[in-house]
Design a protein around this nucleic acid. Structure first.
Lengths: 195, 195
DNA sequence: GTCTATACCCTGATAGAC
DNA sequence: GTCTATCAGGGTATAGAC
């Protein structure tokens, strides 16, 4: 049933973002209609436009929020002294943070095609900032002789691809606990860049 | 200009598949219309239905063909004797095969959501066959004491995620040649599972 | 702030002429 | 085998009442 009229801006806004994130992750941005999102929230399609100028901006907002939260969270992590400890902290942080937000991660990787060139550049810039943190760890480790990778940039992409791959199979309550997953991946990351 | 009537089944069929693969990879399955595909081929939308019963079957065909070709190609590779050599062969084959088919790979990973449950099961079955080949190599290597991974299944997924990640950045004619890429990744794979 | 109503366009798919 | 024409439905976004 349609609700009666009234002011709900403070709760409708977040509910729209939640519904859009869930639906975009499940069916894909292009396959989800504004009517579906509105239906999930319990309003009519037209009401969505009090909160977003258009569908594209809704997507951009989700992706930017995700990446900004990622950068804030990684900046808030305690940074150990040694490069090996920093690599371990990064690895465990990445797995933990990403496994907690499967929908946002999925969208941030899968829906890049639907961004305008400027918006794409914005998002890629944020992602690049995150990647640079790992790259810096690897570069310093190579300098110190602790790591041995022929190309820190490529090694960065390889490690991140491996770690983000956790999201394709990990489910809370499955065969392996998250600490076990962290352990397995940290073991592989550590060895893969070892001197 | 529209072409005149005539029989072109032998060339139109493959051209439809090529156009669909390119467009699906570029914009996403849901964002591409049958009219766009027809336009790229140079026919009217109705003509597509001489070649596929519907859009969904077009997608399934692309994904199944890709995975069947993958399985055929990996089966046709010479299999070395030792597990270390087999892992190296698998690594290099994977990078080479996937880098040659970026569009098909992209679709096979990104459009799983758009498959019906039965079709999804089919595709996942084929993918599982491929993954099992790597898993077998790792299991045997662990038995022989050549590799040390706590969980061969997870290690398989981790290695494949890392290797498939090449497709997100590698471009022919870029900074690194494919043999150089193979070398970098083989180095990391080898170490990551090393005993 | 939400509703209803609607403009306007595009969608997948089909029918029947050629 | 391809065309034109068409159907029924759904797409984003807006206008104006309340």
């Amino acid at each position: 049933m349609a609700r009666t009229q009234g002011s709900h801006s403070d709760i409708t806004g977040p509910r729209i973002l939640d519904a859009a994130q869930r639906l975009f992750a499940q069916h894909g941005y292009a396959a989800v209609s504004m009517r579906q999102i509105a239906g999930a929230v319990g309003v009519q399609a037209g009401a969505l436009y009090n909160y977003t100028p258009d569908k594209q901006t809704l997507l951009l907002g989700l992706m930017r929020t995700h990446l900004e939260e990622l950068l804030e969270a990684v900046a808030a992590e305690p940074a150990p002294d040694g490069v090996m400890d920093r690599l371990e902290a990064f690895t465990r942080f990445h797995i933990r943070f990403h496994s907690e937000r499967p929908d946002a991660v999925f969208i941030a990787y899968m829906e890049l095609r639907n961004l305008s060139p400027e918006n794409f550049a914005t998002i890629e810039g944020l992602r690049g900032q995150y990647e640079n943190m790992l790259e810096e760890i690897l570069r310093q480790g190579v300098e110190e002789g602790v790591f041995d990778v022929p190309d820190p940039k490529i090694a960065t992409l390889a490690v991140i691809a491996m770690l983000t791959g956790v999201n394709t199979w990990y489910r809370s309550g499955g065969r392996l606990s998250l600490p076990q997953v962290e352990e397995i991946y940290w073991d592989m990351v550590r060895k893969s860049v070892a001197a």
